[in-house]
Amino acid sequence: MGIFDKLKGNKAARQKAHQGSDAAEKQINERTGGKYEKQVDTGQQQAEERLGMDRDRPDQQ
């Protein structure tokens, strides 16, 4: 069982991964002054999709 299987099967691990992903996005946006916010958000969503961490994000398109 690999790390990605743990994310898919374990709700607590998935939540922790989401929190880490959100924290990374926030830190990058702070360091760049929000200049690349749209690109960072797109990258975060794509990374989460590939890791099987899809989630509904109605506030972000």
Rank of each mutant, 00 (worst) to 15 (best):
H18N: 14
K38C: 09
G20V: 04
A24N: 05
Q45F: 09
E49P: 03
T42V: 13
E48T: 04
E30R: 15
Q15F: 08
F4M: 06
G52I: 00
G9R: 03
M1H: 11
Q15R: 13
R55V: 01
D56C: 04
D41F: 02
G2D: 12
M1L: 08
A23H: 08
M53P: 00
D22V: 04
S21M: 10
L51A: 03
R31P: 06
T32Q: 10
A12H: 13
Q61G: 15
K35T: 05
K35Q: 03
A13D: 03
T32A: 09
T32L: 11
G20H: 07
G20E: 02
K6R: 07
E30Q: 15
F4I: 07
V40H: 14
E48S: 01
R50T: 05
G2Y: 07
G43A: 04
A13F: 00
R57T: 06
D56R: 10
Y36N: 14
R14I: 00
R57Y: 04
Q19R: 11
K16G: 06
R14A: 12
D41P: 02
I3Q: 15
K38Q: 13
K16L: 07
A24W: 01
Q46T: 12
E25F: 08
A12K: 12
E49V: 05
Q60G: 09
R14F: 02
M1A: 09
R57G: 08
R31I: 10
A12R: 11
